[in-house]
């Protein structure tokens, strides 16, 4: 409950003129879980519910022996390396040729005063090279995202919030989203993934919000395919009977900004396999 007072309610009640301190908030956020789950290794939070539930973990480890995302990963690499019709490649659009950079996403783009995601930059690269953009939630975009995450495995999430009131406002909007109750069932993300993390909702152990983003995109058995983080956001909105937002909407990008910043320090381990 303490975390609510420190992060959620206090922050919502504060006048806007009082500047938030994301770094201090991240520390409180992470310390909450580190204390609550004192036997969990810090980097293990990146494994979601499997860090907290031994039985589910054993099943998952068995699945990881022959990862269901392997074929998608190969497709993703091939798509990534195949030149566009104009001869250019994705590597031309990204720093370091697009290899090992997932930990820096999402970022605040000063020019557009918006949070930008890896998915957006992949599609922007396509459009810049006269190719059609891909759909946001799955398919080829998720496959390329999976490959780019794979090349970043082991790199620590390192989202930056520049000293710019607009960047801070985006962070604040994401935070507000995370702590706001919504839908007919009246749940906040925080209700399930902070307060009740480690508890069971029916037979499902609820993961900690810390480390949730590290393994996206994920191959979900339920989907039978790879899906992006925003697809999962929409799922978590729908299950509380709230209207989901569009993938890559400003709301979800701001949420991703806050959500990922809170996991700074956790290693990228995507793509993941989930139920």
């Amino acid at each position: 409950m303490k975390i609510y007072r420190l992060l959620g309610l206090a922050a919502l009640a504060l006048p806007l003129s009082l500047q938030a301190n994301p770094e201090a908030e991240r520390k409180v956020f992470q310390d909450y879980y580190i204390k609550k789950f004192s036997s969990v290794d810090y980097q293990d939070f990146g494994n979601g519910a499997y860090a907290l539930d031994e039985v589910a973990r054993a099943n998952w480890e068995a699945i990881e022996e022959f990862p269901p995302y392997e074929i998608v990963l190969e497709d993703g690499q091939q798509l990534f390396e195949t030149p566009f019709k104009n001869g250019k490649t994705y590597a031309d659009c990204f720093p370091n040729g697009g290899i090992g950079i997932k930990q820096n996403y999402p970022y605040f783009d000063a020019a557009s005063a918006q949070v930008r995601t890896l998915e957006q930059d992949i599609n922007a690269c396509r459009e810049k090279n006269a190719e059609k953009p891909y759909k946001w939630k799955k398919g080829k975009l998720a496959a390329i995202g999976a490959y780019m995450a794979y090349t970043s495995r082991g790199n620590k999430i390192n989202v930056m919030i520049p000293d710019d009131p607009k960047a801070l406002a985006a962070y604040e909007a994401g935070k507000k989203f995370f702590y706001s109750k919504r839908g007919q069932l009246n749940f906040a993300c925080a209700d399930c993934h902070i307060g009740s993390s480690g508890s069971r909702i029916r037979s499902e152990v609820l993961s900690t919000a810390l480390g949730q983003v590290s393994h996206f995109p994920v191959y979900r058995a339920k989907w039978g395919e790879m899906g992006t983080l925003h697809r999962r956001y929409a799922g978590c909105n729908k299950q509380v009977r709230a209207k989901p937002f569009k993938p890559q909407s400003e709301q979800y990008r701001n949420l991703e900004y806050f959500h990922t910043y809170m996991s700074n320090g956790i290693e990228i381990n995507g793509p993941g396999a989930r139920k």
Binding site: S199, I201, R202
Partner: peptide, 16 residues
Amino acid sequence: CLACHLIIGGESPGNI
């Protein structure tokens, strides 16, 4: 209610 409460006779209850 089983999502969060143990109820005798109900399958796979949660413990929130």
